[in-house]
Design a binder for these strands. Structure first.
Length: 481
RNA sequence: GGCCCCAUCGUCUAGUCAGGUCUAGGACACCAGGUUUUCAUCCUGGCAACACGGGUUCGAAUCCCGUUGGGGUCACCA
């Protein structure tokens, strides 16, 4: 049988990392099986849904390289893919349920329901609809429906139990008396999630529902709907919820949840994908850095573990550095430029100097930050230098640096080895440790005690400018008297 | 609170279904050492976990029960 997977986000905010997480699994499973991955926009909440959010979700998934095969933007055989455009379909099906006695119209006002809920809570009783409209005579119900606003509710048979199988947890059984008469059709004619979800998943031929575990409690309602409609439910696989450090469901307050944030921070999409793949799933090999093709080859939803993974950005940073190091300089330069992290650098210039920075980068903005000294004189870190050359004779250091400046100029263009030898000799001449001389040069040229290789930096800068920086440092080294 | 889900190093996890090969493996982070003119990379080593209590069994991280802990959910939001 064909595999059809789906993700069904609601366009009510920035594209969420949880959507990316669930999409990745659904996308990969469809890819592995030569199936289809559908993105359905659940915009039945008319107040909160916004077109720009829908666009952002589509763009974010495309950026991650896990774009759906069918979506509002890519038509397919089972559209439309926006629930707001499927109103008639839901209406038809709720009518069917009313006709078959599986659902009923409810005329209770929101105010009454709020009061009911408040009362139940105060009395420490389980909350839920009290069934006032359950037994309104069908004819009377139809008549009142002409003029009165109403919703349609699922008529739950409160006896017995409902059972379903979760691919990751096995059988889950719930007493029907704990299942509420869920609203299926809202008073504005839009379906609720539960109704739309079941109808769409069936009509769209979805074979496996992989979604977050927060949905488990509502599965019995869905199962009842499948049964009432005479349909076979698909396979359910509820994946763990991504967590904050305190184990609560990942939230904006405690974690970056917008996919856009990761893009803006200079994370590579392949790093985020690799990282997300490691949440709840693991590769047998020791190397946890892998490409998406490998993931597709190995991924099977039944291997997902169910403990809620705490989001750890440190691991993402590591993965991002790994991915950056794997790119060739031309590609990395493109990523830097296209991502808007060039900081005024021309693309070709980036390609030229990138070897100095690539293995030191964790994120894309690191380049412009670390390469600043190549475009402007940065304030040398005199305190840092002082700590590093504490034991060196200041007079000797100044003398050696002054001569070193001249060496840099006179030996410009010569091989690194030759220049290094000359500088080493200089250090010896002044009775300095080689490291101390180099540290002085380093701080002079790059401004910092930790930097990319010295000589290549000098070459990029030009011998004259480098020498000038060294002489400037010598000036600063004169003790205040 | 009712209902439901979950429980291995600080974090992500392997092992659990088919009990012994687990004195519990890997990765990130951290610490130490090596390489390097610094940093980074790279290499080597180290620290560190089966929530607790019963039971079943010759034998339990693995099976069962309970406790504790964590999470989710109880909307005309998804």
């Amino acid at each position: 049988m064909d595999v059809v997977t789906r993700v069904a986000p609601s366009p009510t905010g920035d594209p969420h990392v949880g959507t990316a997480y669930v999409s990745l699994f659904n996308w990969a499973w469809a890819r592995r099986n030569g199936g289809r991955f559908i993105l359905r926009i659940e915009d039945t909440d008319r107040a909160r849904s916004k077109p720009e959010h829908e666009t952002a979700i589509l763009d974010a998934l495309a950026w991650l390289g896990i774009a759906p095969d069918e979506s509002p933007a890519v038509d397919g055989p089972v559209g439309p893919y926006r629930q707001s455009e499927r109103r008639e379909i839901y209406r038809e099906h709720t009518d069917r349920l009313i006709a078959s006695g599986h659902a009923y119209r409810c005329f209770c006002t929101p105010e009454r329901l709020a009061e009911l809920r408040a009362f139940q809570k105060a009395a420490k009783r389980p909350t839920g609809y009290d069934g006032t409209c359950r037994d309104v005579d069908p004819e009377e119900s139809a008549r009142r429906a002409e003029t009165e606003t109403h919703v349609v509710r699922l008529k739950v048979d409160k006896s017995g139990t409902t059972r379903f199988t979760d691919l990751l947890r096995g059988d889950i059984v719930i007493e029907n008396e704990n299942v509420d008469d869920q609203v299926l059709l809202k008073s504005d004619g839009m379906p609720t999630y539960h109704m739309a979800n079941v109808v769409d998943d069936h009509l769209m031929g979805v074979t496996i529902i992989m979604r977050a575990e927060e949905w488990i409690p509502s599965v019995p309602k869905h199962v009842m709907l499948y049964e009432a409609l005479g349909w076979e439910p698909p396979v359910f696989a509820h994946v763990p919820l991504l967590r904050n450090k305190d184990k609560s469901k990942i939230s904006k307050r405690k974690n970056p949840t917008s996919i856009l944030w990761y893009k803006d921070e200079g994370y590579l999409p392949e790093a985020l994908v690799n990282f997300l793949a490691l949440q709840g799933w693991s590769i047998k090999e020791d190397d946890e850095e892998f490409d998406v093709e490998t993931f597709i080859e190995r991924f099977d939803p039944k291997d997902i573990s169910v403990g809620g993974p705490v989001f750890d950005l440190q691991k993402l940073d590591w993965l991002n550095g790994e991915k950056i190091r794997k790119l060739d300089t031309a590609t990395l330069a493109d990523r830097i430029v296209d991502g808007g992290f060039a900081g005024g650098w021309e693309r070709d210039a980036i390609v030229r100097v990138l070897p100095l920075f690539q293995e030191r980068m964790k994120r894309l903005p690191d380049f412009a930050e670390a390469a600043r000294y190549l475009r402007e004189r940065v304030e040398p870190d005199m305190d840092g230098l002082a700590k590093k050359v504490k034991k060196a004779d200041p007079e000797a250091l100044r003398g050696a640096l002054t001569k070193a400046a001249a060496v840099l100029e006179s030996m410009a263009g010569q091989p690194d080895e030759a220049r290094e030898d000359a500088l080493r000799a200089l250090a010896e001449e002044f009775g300095l440790k080689v490291g101390n001389l180099f540290m002085g040069l380093r701080v002079a040229v790059t401004g910092a005690t930790a930097s990319p290789p010295l000589l290549p930096s000098v070459d990029e800068l030009g011998a004259e400018e480098s020498a000038a920086r060294v002489r400037d440092l010598v000036e600063r080294l004169v003790p205040a008297s």
